[in-house]
Design a binder for these strands. Sequence first.
DNA 1: TATGAATGAGCCTTCATTCAT
DNA 2: CATGAATGAAGGCTCATTCAT
Lengths: 219, 219, 219, 219
Amino acid sequence: MPTPRSNPEPAAPRRARRKEARPGELIDAALALFVEKGFAATRVEEVAARAGVSKGTLFLYFPSKEDLFKAVVRENIAGRFPLWTAELAEFTGSSAELVRYAMHTWWEHVGMTPASGITKLVMSEAGSFPEIAAFYQQEVIIPGNDLLKRILQRGVERGEFRAMDLDYAVYSLIAPMIFLLTWKHSMAPCCPPSQQLDPITFIDTQVDLILHGMLKLPA
Amino acid sequence: MPTPRSNPEPAAPRRARRKEARPGELIDAALALFVEKGFAATRVEEVAARAGVSKGTLFLYFPSKEDLFKAVVRENIAGRFPLWTAELAEFTGSSAELVRYAMHTWWEHVGMTPASGITKLVMSEAGSFPEIAAFYQQEVIIPGNDLLKRILQRGVERGEFRAMDLDYAVYSLIAPMIFLLTWKHSMAPCCPPSQQLDPITFIDTQVDLILHGMLKLPA
Amino acid sequence: MPTPRSNPEPAAPRRARRKEARPGELIDAALALFVEKGFAATRVEEVAARAGVSKGTLFLYFPSKEDLFKAVVRENIAGRFPLWTAELAEFTGSSAELVRYAMHTWWEHVGMTPASGITKLVMSEAGSFPEIAAFYQQEVIIPGNDLLKRILQRGVERGEFRAMDLDYAVYSLIAPMIFLLTWKHSMAPCCPPSQQLDPITFIDTQVDLILHGMLKLPA
Amino acid sequence: MPTPRSNPEPAAPRRARRKEARPGELIDAALALFVEKGFAATRVEEVAARAGVSKGTLFLYFPSKEDLFKAVVRENIAGRFPLWTAELAEFTGSSAELVRYAMHTWWEHVGMTPASGITKLVMSEAGSFPEIAAFYQQEVIIPGNDLLKRILQRGVERGEFRAMDLDYAVYSLIAPMIFLLTWKHSMAPCCPPSQQLDPITFIDTQVDLILHGMLKLPA
DNA sequence: TATGAATGAGCCTTCATTCAT
DNA sequence: CATGAATGAAGGCTCATTCAT
């Protein structure tokens, strides 16, 4: 950067050609707006504008608004499962630790990020966009449930957890998280400080209680 | 029908009687449709048709679709709480039984009725209608949480449950129920039979696990 | 109409309610514009404006642009077949007279009216709107060919015309007419007066020649 | 390939040779696509792709899609007329044979080749491009009509055909052919096999009928 | 008061055309 | 010369809302 006026962003070129960066920028913009305003209420033009491109450019990368939404989901949630599956396979601690680790990891990478809005979004608009609901079901819910089920199964197989109907027991882990998301993105913004939930405390409390209920008593 | 005013209610000319009943009929129709199809996907014409009036008439009673939505929420959040509070005071069984009773009662009177859709409705549209969210918070959430808190407190005071942070513990009861509602009204309609949840099994499983985690060990 | 200033068209009321008249007005407007500019190049808003209503009103009567077009075809062409079929059944003259009568009737009711543009329209845009082409085929071409075939068959059966492959012979009647329409609506407007065709002369010439070719020689 | 410039044409580096060939290749691609899909339904990107270049390159040679269309028409209407005129002068058979020969020749060299699409193209788009229609009129229609007229005149002068209004009689030959083209390029692709026309049969039938109508009766 | 015909703003998507590289 | 990413105007259709009757 030899000269003082060398401009790293030269005059914000109107028609920059940045094929690689576009999809990511559009997905980020879409995530923010979908979460903030909902899927139906977000206009593709807004998404494009927020990503700094024109409406037409958006359709250059995503064939439709629904496909854009799917990309948002894949990028922010569905794409994480391979890593999580790998982590599960390598985990060496106790299953109780694994459950705690899983819940906190989820909070860090999804719950506390803008991606947390996606779940609430899907729930809210599933009725109006069945295709999106089905997609989410396939790409997120089923893999997510499977992952949790394998975690619980590990505990049972290692003699740490008591025998359970795993298909329903997973919801003891899922339900509090879904509730937390739903709360965060719908009621929390309207509540007085006294009614706010501290997520970490909430998660710890739920996990403790659940583990208490699951653990095989030594006696 | 001897005198004109002898019987103001039954068998009165339909037109005349309706005038008073219109808003209620419209609200009922709107509740059913909003719950079934979501707010945005419900056309006011459908609501009017279901209430047996024309589109124009609806706007005679509700200045806008949003106002109709608000009326639906206000009309249906009702006061079942006084009755439940009384039941709690008179309950003589164990606290574990009380928890089970409370959960099943809620399912019977709210969860399995159309009213269950309201909660999902409010959650979904809270972002767009902060006023409604605040209203719901005051009239439903705070009283509901209080009621549950008193139930847990009873268990702790009677030495049945171990000491807990009650403000967070209540969510162990609330979260599965909210999840169940959310699920029922958003994803379930899009899921294959293999992915469906049986509500009673679900509730029993959750309550069992929670109680397991809450119970003071006899040892 | 007691007072002098009673206005038969009172100040052109903006929102007149004329449910019965609308479809016809819209169809007329659509015919004119479709013929003038083509199907694809005509915007529904133009049609609505020409009919004196708003865009939304058009969709109140016709679910889509294609349905509007179908209505135009039904109203202006397809709907005439029943009458023509009846006329054929009652005709008592010679078959040569019948052919002449049919051709001139067609010219009067279709060829020289704006409806004549429809055929050219369909031919021009069939590639882009296969559904329209198929519709036209079903509702106009097949019935039209059938009608002509019956006319020729009558001549053969009565010993007036010689035996012919009727399936192909009908095109001796159809081709000149299609050509005439095509010409009228595409090339004619660009031609100098010296190149113009007189329709009546054209039809008479073609019919004479064809009949000459069809007639059974008395010898 | 001893010297560098010895062979400017064959096996020359593709890039270099192309420069001159580009417009022609684009026109060929455009002809094929316009004929196949219609003007509006053909995207310039398709044309470019078919010609093996990018969209931008097309606009380097043709300022607009319309200009490309004009070029297609201008390039393909060519001059087969001189040859046909010569053939007419040398023909020694009967005039009926000449008519048959002319019709079949036309089918072979125009009707059954891609060039047949141009006529339909011009007819379809004449309304939007009067300039092209006028051009077509001068370069194709007038010479074509003249040629046919001379053929008929030959028959009359040789006493083979009866006296006719030749200016209109030529259309007995033209109309079926125009109809055939129109049909082939618009309705045929949408018709079931049962509705298809066999061109040779069609032409033979029409010619036979016409000749029948034209021939001077021996009596 | 009730009706329902009429309105028109709003939105997704397409594609001819431009222009920085 | 060639490329292809970017643009933005245009159009079909929906539906909450209005208003003449």
